[in-house]
Structures are given as C-alpha cells and as structure tokens.
C-alpha cells in the first residue's frame, strides 16, 4: 500500500490530529485533492492512527489530540468502534462480561480495554436517542441437548450459553441427530466439541446442507481447549439437515471435523 516518505507521514499525522496552522492545512489539502496517491496515504494514516490508539501506542499528548480532534465527529467514532469490534465480531467473541468488568474502571488505565472504550462511544449514539433504560440483551433460549449432544459445562461467565452442543462421531454412530428449532432470534450459537484438546486461537467454520450447498461460512472461537463456538445467523438456517465443518484456521480441510445437526420447523418436536 502507499507509503509516504517519513516527513509526509509526520505531516499527515499532524494534519489528522489537528496540529497544523491554517496555511499548512491548506497546503496539505491542496495536495490531497490533486494527488490520488497522497489521498490514499492520508487514509492509511487514519487507519494507522486508529490502530495505534486501540493498541494504546499513542503518547499521552497524541491520545488527547486523537480524542479531542480526530475522534470528534460521529463518523470517526463509528469507524473507531467498528475497527475495535471487527476482530471480535469476526472471531465471535462474546464481550458482555468484559463490558461489565470495564464499566467502573478508568479507560485510560486499562490498555487492554482502551479500544473497548471506543466501542462505548458507539453506545453514545444509542443513548442520545434512547429516552428510557437500555434494553436487555437479546434473549437466549436454553441449550438444546437432544440426541448425541451433551449439556454445556464449565462455561466462562462471559460466554453466552449455546443453543446447540455438537459432539464428534455422530456421523459414524448413526444415533439421533442434535436438533435445534428454527426461531426468530438473530443468531444460533453452536458449540462443537473437539475430538482432542486444541490450543488454536481461531477456527474456520462452515455450515452446508446435506446436498452440499454452503449456507454460511465464518470463524469460530475456542471455548476452553475442547470446544469451538460458532455463531450462525438464524436466517441462514431453514428447517432441514445440515453439516457443520470446523477446522483450525490456516490449515487445509482434511484436519477439519464434521458435525451433523437438524433444524426443525417451529413447533416441531
């Protein structure tokens, strides 16, 4: 990607942090509108600043300028929040407990959660429009443990209960398949038990119909050493028979495991 010279890079940072005189700003902006490569470098500079802020790598003065100037607009606040939650959203990490933990703590004192504070800014947007109290989190139905599935055990408090727990080997055993009922909730949380303990930090996952049509692809996060949590949009799961495939991210398919399950129509037993 575009890499400006060190001096230009420093100028871009000063521009983004609001540390330029009017004359300097005009010079930078003239170049911004005339030079497409320079415009890309400025966008890179924005991303870079956001990353460094979220990783607590800015000096105290830069952090202050970032919060007071760079992040002054709702659009930037959204972008910062988006960048912060994206990796977690991709990895499917539940943060409810983490949010509760950070609430009484000054955000600057906790580099690990500094970025989360940016997410909280996103919440401002909600609060400004919400006259009443915050709504409760979307309801999660109790786990369904039919057939070869097992009840969830030793869940960390921050992780929501699964809607479905799948065990390996069901394809071979020929027993009744785990079943979840199609419902109106936004997502279905599925825990897949691993055949052996793993220390991988990220898994790739896919759900396909028994006919082979992929209905969802994404990632899963570890829940302990022997389970992987995947969160599938409910809209992808119409009543029918499915296979969930889970593998370690970055490794080819043969090392993945398949888990069959059934989505039953609402009201079905």
């Amino acid at each position: 990607m575009t890499r400006p010279a060190a001096g230009a890079s420093a100028d871009i940072e000063r521009y983004l942090l609001g540390r330029m005189s009017s004359r300097e700003m005009a010079a930078i902006e003239t170049r911004l509108f005339e030079d497409d490569q320079f415009a890309l470098a400025v966008e890179d500079g924005e991303d870079d600043l956001i990353d460094r802020y979220l990783h607590d790598e800015l000096s105290a003065a830069d952090r202050r300028a970032f919060e007071e100037h760079f992040a002054a607009s709702p659009l930037r606040q959204e972008r910062i929040a988006f960048r912060r939650v994206l990796p977690e959203a991709v990895a499917g990490r539940a943060t409810a407990g983490a949010v509760a933990a950070v609430r009484p703590t000054p955000w600057r004192a906790l580099p690990r959660w500094a970025g989360l504070a940016a997410v909280l800014v996103l919440g401002l947007w909600i609060l400004q429009r919400r006259p009443g109290p915050l709504p409760p989190s979307p309801g999660v139905s109790p786990p369904i443990t039919i057939g070869g599935s097992s009840p969830p055990s030793s869940e960390p408090a921050a992780i929501d209960a699964p809607d479905l727990v799948l065990r390996p080997g069901l394809l071979r055993s020929g027993g009744a398949l785990p079943r979840v009922t199609a419902r109106s909730a936004a997502v279905v949380r599925i825990d897949a038990e691993l055949e052996e303990a793993s220390r991988a930090s990220l898994y790739v996952a896919a759900v396909r119909t028994v006919e082979g049509r992929v209905v969802w692809e994404g990632t899963g996060q570890p829940v302990g050493k022997d389970r992987v949590r995947v969160i599938v949009p409910a809209s992808a799961l119409r009543p029918g028979d499915y296979l969930l495939r889970v593998g370690v991210s970055g490794r080819p398919g043969p090392e993945s495991t398949e888990y069959p399950f059934v989505v039953a129509p609402p009201g079905a037993r």
């Binding site: 929040a81 939650v85 977690e88 959203a89 539940a94 943060t95 409810a96 949010v99 609430r103 000054p106 955000w107 989360l116 504070a117 940016a118 997410v119 909280l120 800014v121 996103l122 919440g123 401002l124 909600i126 609060l127 915050l134 989190s137």
Partner: peptide, 11 residues
C-alpha cells in the same frame, strides 16, 4: 464515553 455501556449491542 464511560457512561455508554452498550458495547455488547454494538458488537
């Protein structure tokens, strides 16, 4: 910003 704690919703 610390007042806002709807991060779970945003996520």
């Amino acid at each position: 910003p610390r007042w806002a704690f709807a991060a779970d919703e945003g996520l």
